[in-house]
Nucleic acid binder design. Structure first.
Lengths: 241, 241
DNA sequence: GTGCGTTTGTGACATTGGTCACACGGCCTT
DNA sequence: AAGGCCGTGTGACCAATGTCACAAACGCAC
């Protein structure tokens, strides 16, 4: 830690000393690789909502989320917007484009105050050729991206209704971050209904109405920003995916 | 060529002698790699509609299309079916699953009489670690898959109508395989309306109606299995993607 | 040609869900 | 307390499209 906090984030520019280091992808280099890695990266902190790159731009380099989170969105000429992925600490932003050199197909912005590492494209390409565990981690992340894309294609293409997609989203929250309580599974909801609608590809009003119908059927209860799923199986029954 | 034709396909089991070898991915190994590669692969011919693997199965090995074509589909409990990808000669089937060991998320079947190579998973994993150009080609193919998935997410999630998705599909046909003629761009249509509907995630009837509306507006004409796009820009105007 | 299976065309109808319009409530700042 | 902003709840309305039910056209085998 060299600097004071910025946007509430304590900056740390050497992976070896990183207090948030976890078991995902790019945190997992061995000490030698990590040292070389640190030498070619730039660290910076960003406030919530900072634009990292935009659809159509050419990739200048690779971002890695050290702390915080980001989201990728795509948008249509008609103003419609879809959130295609949420990126957590330890994951990369725009890896495929850095590898291929093709323009970004999505826009990336932080969704909370975050610290990111940045590596210039040419440095990263050279680096990835020199170290074995780097190419391995690249492949891992690429596979992970394919996997998550496949899930989204399934949800968008196969669901018969917005209710089905929403039920699917709620269940994924339960599985990823749900806490068992006596009356069901409690999850912290960090998205507004607007964001939820952009995640499942529907309108904000529809999300509001469907959530109401879930509440009416006593499937869920909502208090402040936490939601409790009482009858998981009723959500599962909705889903034919 | 060792064997007589099967399902109308002339079998060839050594890449070095392959008459269909092209410039995509796995055809591009250098001679040394190619030789080692031939030693661990099995070649076979399949009729149209042959099932190669199904959703939920564990990957036994990697398929590579030498000749012919295949498609990947996903389907819901409700009987709905979506074609997620068409796989042409030189491309692989199920690479991500072979790499990760996770169950297939899609079903693969040939969409014309085809010759495929098969490599057992453990052989492929060993092979991919030993030869440099193999890992390179794997990364290339993974990136290609992410790219195609991203396009599909955009088409499914951002389009406002079935007409928009269909227009998008027709334009992609023009770009990929269109032949300029005096009255417009001519493309050979190899899909039935049923398959088209499964590609763009709508019903067969809707495809029929939208095509009719395009014909009525003189945007396209259809004769037998070839279609001519007369007014490309009118299709483009439909698309807000 | 004849016949059969597949593919395509079309009408009628019900439902979903997008859009517009506006009210309400919470929270923050002044 | 007042005002404003943001997120949410809700009614009314309508266009898009899924579904069912046939009919017509096409392609292929005999």
């Amino acid at each position: 830690m060299r600097n004071g906090p910025r946007y509430g984030v304590q900056i740390c520019d050497r992976c070896g000393e990183c207090p948030w280091r976890n078991d995902s992808f790019f945190c997992q280099f061995d000490p030698v690789t990590l040292k070389a890695f640190d030498d070619i990266t730039f660290v910076d902190a960003y406030p919530e909502g900072a634009l990292l790159f935009a659809e159509g731009e050419l990739p200048r380099g690779l971002y890695i989320v050290c702390y915080g989170s980001a989201k990728l969105t795509i948008s249509s000429g008609g103003g419609k917007k879809l959130i295609t992925r949420r990126v957590a600490a330890g994951e990369t932003l725009g890896l495929t484009n850095v590898m291929s050199g093709k323009p970004y197909k999505a826009t990336a912005e932080t969704s909370s105050p975050s610290q990111l590492k940045f590596i210039k494209r040419e440095d990263f390409l050279r680096f990835s050729g020199e170290y074995r565990d780097v190419s391995f981690n690249i492949a891992r992340q690429l596979i992970e991206e394919c996997d998550s894309d496949a899930n989204q294609i399934r949800a968008l293409g196969l669901a018969n209704s917005a209710a089905e997609r929403l039920a699917y989203l709620l269940l994924s929250w339960c599985d990823e971050s749900g806490v068992a309580s006596k009356s069901g599974m409690r999850v912290y909801v960090s998205m507004t209904q607007e964001e939820i609608s952009q995640t499942i590809g529907t309108s904000r009003e529809t999300v509001s109405r469907i959530l109401k119908s879930f509440k009416d059927k006593k499937i869920i209860t909502v208090r402040r920003s936490s939601m409790t799923v009482h009858r998981r199986h009723e959500l599962e029954d909705l889903i034919l995916l």
